[in-house]
């Protein structure tokens, strides 16, 4: 479990500071795969249940979502750079600060349940996902940030041992998949209508 968590955390940091989009998507897929292994490690759950969750997680987070994003990157001709509003140096510093504050917040508020490290790692992923969503300018990067944030919440949930009945868990995955799928469709439509993917320039609606 701890090895998995550390790997997830490292992938998350790579995602947060990565300057290029394709490696970021590969990291995202790897993160989804590791998250899929979590239910198998948890011995308390029944065999079938764990297997179903493992298949659903890997299917959605490691195969389907990265496939949608890769398709978007290659078909939309949006370049390799994941442009950011702030420099890479600042991003690295901010990510470090957020990681530190996630660990501090976990001890301060006693958030960690069964697994202290996993809770802190989950919170770190949540923070870095938000950072990516707010600082990256390309729509694809914002979706990546959203999925990282979701992964963080998933890890936090696993760390606190919250479990729901299988239909609800599968509903959660279905929701996430459809959300990213819709975002993918919208990316194509936006590209066609605006002929660019820079969300800085999409601001016709304001007061």
């Amino acid at each position: 479990m701890n090895t998995l968590t550390v790997l997830l955390l490292l992938l998350g940091i790579h995602l947060a500071v990565s300057e290029r989009i394709r490696p970021a998507i590969r990291s995202l897929a790897a993160q989804g795969f590791l998250l899929g292994l979590l239910p198998l490690l948890d011995s308390s759950g029944g065999g079938w249940r764990a297997a179903a969750l493992c298949v659903a997680t890997i299917g959605v987070k490691s195969v389907a979502i990265p496939a949608i994003l890769t398709r978007a990157v290659s078909r939309l001709d949006i370049g390799q750079e994941s442009e950011s509003l702030i420099s890479t140096k600042t991003t690295i510093l901010l990510t470090g600060a957020l990681t530190l504050s996630a660990f501090l917040a976990c001890t301060r508020f006693g958030l960690s349940g069964k697994d202290q490290l996993a809770a802190a790692a989950g919170l770190t992923l949540l923070f870095s996902g938000l950072l990516t969503m707010t600082t990256r300018v390309k729509a694809v990067s914002q979706v990546i940030g959203f999925v990282v944030l979701e992964n963080g919440i998933f890890l936090l949930g696993a760390a606190s041992g919250s479990e729901f009945t299988l239909p609800i868990e599968l509903g959660i995955f279905l929701d996430l998949f459809v959300a990213v799928f819709l975002m993918g469709i919208l990316m194509f439509k936006i590209q066609r209508a605006f002929t660019h993917m820079d969300v800085r320039k999409i601001h016709m609606l304001k007061d």
Partner: peptide
Amino acid sequence: GDRKGMEAAWKYLLICSV
């Protein structure tokens, strides 16, 4: 399917999902 509609839908989907 116009630009403004897509901008609105994009914001809606992203902000509400978060």
